[in-house]
């Protein structure tokens, strides 16, 4: 019994923590499949985080705040995409530019509006609603405890993952998107524009990163500079670790969420320097990545 006493909060928190990674990674998957490296996820999350909480506070509406936050992240992704695709710039460096721009712009704007470069609190914004489920579902042992009782964004994210899988594998749009990534010429020969699919892939990543960012700040009811804190990079890792499939990304995000959840728990319970515990999720992810590579290597050897 004491076992579940620890494991339930551990997994429950992991489900919460993985959500921003999962969202950013699922959006980034569309960019990745269209043949573009998306290292701008980090900056897009940051933009979504800043603007959604600021707009939520300004309008007093959570929904409006989140939607406007997503819109701002999409505008930034449109800038990133337009310069990369239409001005034919190096996607790597425009991605870095987007991260730098988001990081500088949010701080400069925060300084202009709120006269501080530190944490900005918004105590008056409404709380994220929790999804209510029938009591019999809640009573399922373990599963009921860890899967239910989260805020709505967690469930919207799961829905997005399912929709993403259907779109990628079962719709003409998804086929053409993947085709663009595999061989642009095929798409051209079909009379379609590869650029349009690449731009769509980037805009979709802007959408999901915006939502990921809004979850970070609205849950806290505050904006912290650099609140994205490497989540965009971890999302990129999840795309690769997840073998560029929605299910794989879901599993990779969960592994990282679990590692971080454990590291949060360990800070109070284990006598180890905090920095080592904070480094734990990265070490676990590297280890998972290497083990996966060894397994794949061994399999391809046969």
């Amino acid at each position: 019994m004491s076992n579940s006493q620890y494991s339930i909060p551990l997994v429950y928190n992991a489900v919460e923590i993985m959500t921003p990674f999962l969202l950013a990674a699922i959006g980034g998957l569309f960019t990745e499949l269209s043949g573009m490296l998306n290292i701008a996820l980090e900056g897009l999350i940051l933009a979504g985080a800043f603007f959604s909480v600021v707009f939520a506070a300004a309008t007093g509406s959570l929904l409006l705040g989140i939607l406007l936050g997503i819109l701002c992240a999409m505008l930034l992704s449109a800038l990133f995409g337009a310069i990369t695709i239409y001005l034919r710039a190096n996607v790597f460096i425009t991605g870095l530019a987007t991260n730098l721009f988001a990081s500088g712009f949010t701080i400069v704007l925060a300084y202009q509006i709120f006269k501080t470069k530190g944490v900005i609190q918004f105590p008056n914004i409404p709380k994220l609603p929790v999804l209510s489920v029938p009591a019999f579902l809640q009573r399922i042992p373990f599963v009921g405890d860890v899967l239910f009782g989260h805020n709505v964004i967690v469930y919207i994210t799961w829905l997005i993952v399912v929709v993403a899988a259907v779109v990628i594998y079962r719709t003409p749009f998804g086929m053409h998107l993947r085709g663009t990534g595999m061989n642009e010429q095929t798409i051209v020969s079909l009379g379609l524009s590869p650029r349009r699919y690449q731009l769509s892939g980037i805009l979709i990543s802007g959408f999901t990163c915006g939502l990921a960012g809004s979850m970070l700040t609205i849950q806290l009811a505050a904006f912290v500079p650099e609140i994205s804190a490497g989540r965009g990079w971890i999302a990129l890792v999840a795309i690769y670790l997840g073998n560029r499939t929605p299910l794989g990304i879901f599993i990779a995000s969960f592994v990282f969420g679990l590692a971080e959840s454990f590291s949060n728990y360990a800070q109070g319970a284990i006598k180890l320097p905090v920095d080592f515990i904070l480094a734990f999720p990265y070490v676990v992810t590297v280890a998972a990545m290497i083990l996966y590579a060894i397994w794949r290597h061994a399999r391809s050897g046969k």
Partner: peptide, 19 residues
């Protein structure tokens, strides 16, 4: 932080083949 924004402008355009 205005420096980050200025750097990002340069990043955006420096490899733009079209320019």
């Amino acid at each position: 932080e205005i420096a980050s924004i200025a750097q990002s402008f340069i990043f955006y355009f420096v490899t733009a083949q079209a320019l």
